[in-house]
Nucleic acid binder design. Structure first.
Length: 188
DNA sequence: TGAATGATTTACT
DNA sequence: GTAAATCATTCAA
């Protein structure tokens, strides 16, 4: 589970749409460990229409909407019946930067294009339509990339989860400028 | 049927 | 630094 999350770092996410296509290298993810993890939506074995896809086969997209305005994109990682997922928190744009910039209404070459869960979903035009999609056959898919070193840290935005919030299940590429936040050292 | 809340981002002081 | 935006999903009655 955690190794799967780490393996996601460095892979490429591609989304083809009518407007063109965009791609990015995944530089930050978080692991969510189903029933045991209070921070996970599937905590306690909860099974609802929203979490249903996590109980299905791996390689599918778990997309959900929060705070009334943001989508988050997850990769279902484990076998049927085990509701574990990896949240894609940030990517480094590699193609279609101008299209992303147009969607985000920001200038190209801007790091803020994709350095957050809600941001990258908007830049990639990921929404409810991608829910449950197969990430190997659909318009939204993953591709292998060069393996690279990863760092780990506690997860973000789940303080309500108590001790689980301190589990170092966030993986990121320390060499990328597109990681969402919590950089260890000064920006320069 | 109704009320509470969140795996966030953005804007403003 | 703090606060507001905003709505699908979820839990209670």
């Amino acid at each position: 589970m955690l190794s799967v999350a780490r393996d996601c770092i460095g892979k490429h996410l591609i989304h083809e749409t009518d407007d063109g296509w965009v791609a990015g290298r995944i530089v930050e993810v978080e692991a969510y460990r189903g029933p045991e993890d209070r921070a996970a939506h599937s905590f306690g074995g909860r099974r609802t229409p929203r979490t249903e896809v996590m109980y299905g086969p791996p390689g599918h997209a778990y997309v959900f909407f929060v705070y009334g305005m943001h989508w988050n994109f997850n990769l279902v990682t484990t076998e049927v019946g085990a509701p574990h997922a990896v949240l894609i928190r940030a990517v480094e744009p590699t193609a279609g930067v101008e299209l992303m910039a147009a969607r985000r209404k920001l200038p190209p070459m801007h790091r803020d294009l994709t350095n957050g869960p809600g941001k990258l979903c908007r830049a990639f035009a990921i929404d409810g339509a991608a829910y449950g999609g197969d990430l190997t056959t659909g318009a939204l898919f993953l591709s292998d990339g060069p393996r690279c070193k990863t760092a780990r840290s506690p997860r973000i935005g789940i303080d309500y989860a108590g001790e689980w919030a301190r589990r170092p299940w966030r993986f990121y590429d320390p060499g990328s400028a597109c990681v969402s936040r919590a950089r260890p050292g000064p920006p320069a």
